[in-house]
Write a protein that binds this DNA or RNA. Structure first.
Length: 495
RNA sequence: GGCCCGUUAGCUCAACUGGUAGAGCAGCGGACUCUUAAUCCGCGGGUUGGAGGUUCGAGUCCUCCACGGGUCACCA
């Protein structure tokens, strides 16, 4: 005990002494419950607009709890604010109301403590809704001083490592996560209303499939097998479509063993949905509908600011072919575009550390560098090379292109969708091609999944499938530049 | 992983070319019964991220390390 005891700061020492005093007075330090009549935000919602006269006449008695955030002691009366992540409320403690002994007890309370109050609502001279306290009780002591009341907690590292402190101090942070939660609820409603079935597919997979990415590896002791955290649910969801679940969606985590950046967290949340008998044109319609629906319901409009940029979700979204976008933004002439060696050497300029790359891969690199950053308004980029889209059908117009689109907004890839490849013979050939790429060192190449091929051999109906990055969508709607601002506990190196 | 920037009191931030490390908030003591960044008087609080080095003297300069941010690379 002595050895593990951390050194207390002077302020922490004071708080421990206050705790001891409370205990000595027989105060219950950690009561089992508090019979509140309302949550804080309910009080603000219900009574926040009542006039002084209404409050005076109605004598509304409440029991409410929260964390003490500020204290203004003025001799025989004290004002303080209590708050939770949603709301705050002022409280007024008077010696002549609660009595001297009780009033003195409050000297042992600090900013940060959790407190339960009982009293009546009134409005102060300046018009603020306030509880006139008749009784109060400690609900939990806070052992540490809180960050500064005016600037909040600024240090980003501490904000991410101790998100609870961030949430306590910075109300706008809580708003982001409320928005995120409401967005996910709306997505569920959107798909449920359209007859989709929400499903859960394996997070631990013997063959990690459905995306080009490096997986995390783990081991199952009893079975004695390697397993991989999923990089995508795609191949399982399509098995379900084979099984006759013709409209399915899943909102869950994917794991990719790759770098961390302002747009990448190793675990991230993905919406994937599949609808039988649809193609990617149908998906574009559905995607527009979904985004407008979310934007309208969350923000009440169809335009948002992302940084300085006004993003419009007015339908229809722009559509541009992958090839045309490249010609427009990369400076490649149509004749050079057709020359694989030219394209590959240009790509190598952007990505010198990359090993041998193919024509399709090179086009993709150039797209990322030259095109994506320019696409700020919602834009469907259609028909990337088939070679880099091994799970998508070839375009009905051009066999070298995939029937696939990526939705780019604010330079970020938000969605990726295709008319699913349902020809098992073609799919086998594509897997074999990927296996070749894997052999020549491409660690992100797709794995051969024989059971998935077997499922296709039973017949996957024509199907459209799409993935939407929930974190990035939240970034967009919450106007945040870093994915860490929309993930409660982003991955950091342990300290 | 490369490059750039950051790390100072519990928190938010200062400290010119190297010369005794400061302020506000928070805390402690006192005054104060409508305050709200309460106010007024007084007080305490630091291994300047860590380890070396240069120097009479290092928060400041150099090297290495740790963590974070940005950017490029890798990657959706």
């Amino acid at each position: 005990m002595d050895e593990s005891k951390e050194k207390l700061t002077d302020q922490e020492q004071v708080r421990q002494e206050k705790l001891a005093s409370l205990k000595a007075k027989g105060i219950e330090l950690y009561p089992y419950k508090f019979a509140k009549t309302h949550f804080l935000d309910e009080i603000v919602a219900l009574y926040g607009l009542k006039s002084r006269e209404e409050l005076e006449n109605e004598k509304i008695r409440v029991k409410v709890a929260g964390r003490i955030m500020t204290i203004r002691r003025m001799g025989r009366a004290t004002f303080f604010h209590i708050a939770n992540s949603q709301a705050k409320l002022q409280a007024y403690l008077r010696e002549d109301v609660v009595g001297l002994e009780s009033y003195r007890l409050f000297d042992l309370f600090d900013i940060g403590d959790l407190i339960g109050l009982e009293g009546t609502l009134f409005r102060t001279k300046t018009g603020e809704l306030t509880v006139l306290i008749e009784k109060f009780e400690l609900l939990a002591k806070c052992f540490h001083p809180l960050p500064e009341k005016w600037h909040g907690l600024q240090d980003v590292e501490t904000r991410y490592r101790r998100r609870y402190l961030d949430l306590i101090m910075n109300p706008e942070v809580a708003k982001i996560f409320v928005l995120r939660s409401r967005m996910i609820s709306l997505i569920r409603k959107f798909f449920d209303d359209r007859g989709y079935l929400e499903v859960e597919t394996p997070m631990m997979q013997p063959i990690p499939g459905g995306a080009a990415a490096r997986p995390f590896k783990t081991y199952h002791n009893a079975l004695g097998i390697d397993l991989y955290l999923r990089i995508a649910p795609e191949l399982y969801l399509k098995r379900l479509v084979v099984g006759g679940l013709e409209k399915v969606y899943e909102i869950n985590r994917n794991f990719r063993n790759e770098g961390i950046s302002s747009e990448h967290n190793p675990e991230f949340t993905m919406l994937e949905f599949y609808e039988a008998y649809c193609d990617y044109y149908d998906l574009m319609e559905l995607t527009e509908e979904l985004l407008v629906y979310l934007c309208q319901n969350l923000l009440g409009r169809d335009e948002i600011f992302y940084g300085d940029e006004l993003i419009s979700f007015k339908r229809p979204f722009a559509r541009i072919k992958f090839k045309e976008a490249l010609l427009q933004f990369s400076g490649l002439s149509p004749s050079r575009f057709e020359q694989p060696s030219e394209v590959i050497s240009l790509a190598k300029n952007f990505s010198p550390e990359k090993g041998a790359i193919t024509y399709g891969k090179a086009l993709d690199i150039i797209f990322d560098k030259c095109v994506k950053p320019h696409l700020l308004q919602p834009t469907f980029v259609l028909n990337p090379p088939r070679e880099i889209s091994p799970l998508a059908k070839a375009s009905r117009d051009n066999p070298e292109e995939a029937e696939r689109f990526e939705l780019i907004i604010a330079g970020m890839e938000i969605a990726n969708a295709f008319t699913e490849l349902n020809d098992p013979v073609d799919q086998r050939a594509r897997f074999e091609q990927q296996a070749e790429a894997r052999k020549s060192g491409d660690e992100e190449a797709h794995w051969l999944d024989l059971d998935y091929l077997n499922a296709l051999e039973y017949g996957l109906p024509p199907t459209g499938g799409e993935g939407i990055g929930i974190d990035r969508l939240t970034m967009l709607l919450a106007n945040r530049r870093s994915i860490r601002e929309v993930i409660l506990f982003p991955l950091l190196r342990p300290k």
